[in-house]
């Protein structure tokens, strides 16, 4: 049983001018076995929360704390956080030319598991995980994310999730840009990871569509850089009907199954 605890987190983004505060006191506690959906309008700071948890250098934590089973996550380097059991599936996975996917996956698994996986079982494991996500085997020899379509990138994020088996996974708009088939495949991948046992999921999304496939235990509404309301799955249904207007004072909001 693990706990990811975020307390009064304030984060600014570093710009050429003065830093701009994006997160204004986020409180969130996720325990293993739970799936939390964080829903909010564009610009509410959802992705900033995701990148801050992963330790992106562009974001500066000005106050508050993040702990994983009592350990100070904010004191860890980016790679230490990953090795401690945090995983961020990115909205925009980065292309790394010249580094093959297979080399990358093996380097990551070696780092996270503390030793290089045995070649024979590793190859089998990767092949199986790729097949589960409908990824052609040729992708193993392609450069990391280079020239991948949006959907291919998202599948590969979930591939990494399934191979690295973190304690907590933060999925940042993993559903955006996916067609219905890809959404189903990716969601099944996330559900398989959830079924491996004691893991927690933070699902960041703008739309309710993905919640049909990945059922959340808790739904949070994110606005103005913090959690403004929390509830059960019924909260998502309310958002589907009424949008974010109640939280932002602005019309418009959730589009059901919407595409951007």
């Amino acid at each position: 049983m693990s706990t990811l605890e975020i307390k009064d987190l304030h984060v600014s983004v570093i710009t050429d001018d003065a830093p701009i505060e994006i997160l204004r006191g986020v409180d969130l506690t996720v325990t293993s076995g739970q799936t939390h959906a964080i829903m909010g309008p564009n610009g509410s700071g959802k992705s900033t929360l995701a990148y801050s948890l992963a330790g992106h250098p562009k974001y500066q934590v000005t106050s508050g704390s993040v702990t994983l089973d009592g350990q100070d996550v904010l004191a860890m380097t980016v790679d230490e956080r990953a090795r401690a059991g945090l995983f961020l599936a990115m909205q925009y996975p980065v292309e790394v030319p010249g580094v093959s996917m297979s080399n990358f996956l093996r380097s990551a698994a070696t780092a996270v598991r503390g030793q290089a996986p045995a070649i024979r079982t590793w190859v089998k494991e990767v092949r199986g995980a790729m097949a589960d996500l409908g990824i052609e085997s040729e992708f193993a020899e392609r450069s990391v994310n280079e020239g991948f379509s949006g959907g291919e990138k998202k599948r590969h994020e979930i591939l990494q999730l399934s191979l690295l088996r973190p304690k907590f996974a933060v999925l940042d708009e993993t559903d955006s840009g996916l067609d219905v088939d890809a959404l189903r495949v990716v969601s099944e991948g996330v559900n398989r990871y959830r079924e491996t046992g004691d893991v927690g999921v933070v699902l960041i999304t703008h739309y309710t569509r993905i919640l049909r496939y990945i059922k959340p235990d808790v739904v949070h509404v994110f606005a103005g850089g913090r959690v403004v309301e929390s509830g059960g799955p019924e909260l998502a249904e309310e958002l589907e009907t009424n949008g974010y207007v109640r939280f932002t004072g602005q019309p418009g909001g959730v589009t059901v199954g919407g595409q951007r």
């Binding site: 992106h56 250098p57 380097t77 790679d79 990953a82 580094v99 080399n103 990358f104 380097s107 690295l164």
Partner: peptide, 17 residues
């Protein structure tokens, strides 16, 4: 950042790049 976010230490990540 991307490589490190998968647990790969900075020196290893630099070599990969």
């Amino acid at each position: 950042f991307y490589l490190q976010s998968r647990g790969i230490p900075e020196d290893v990540a630099r070599r990969l790049v």
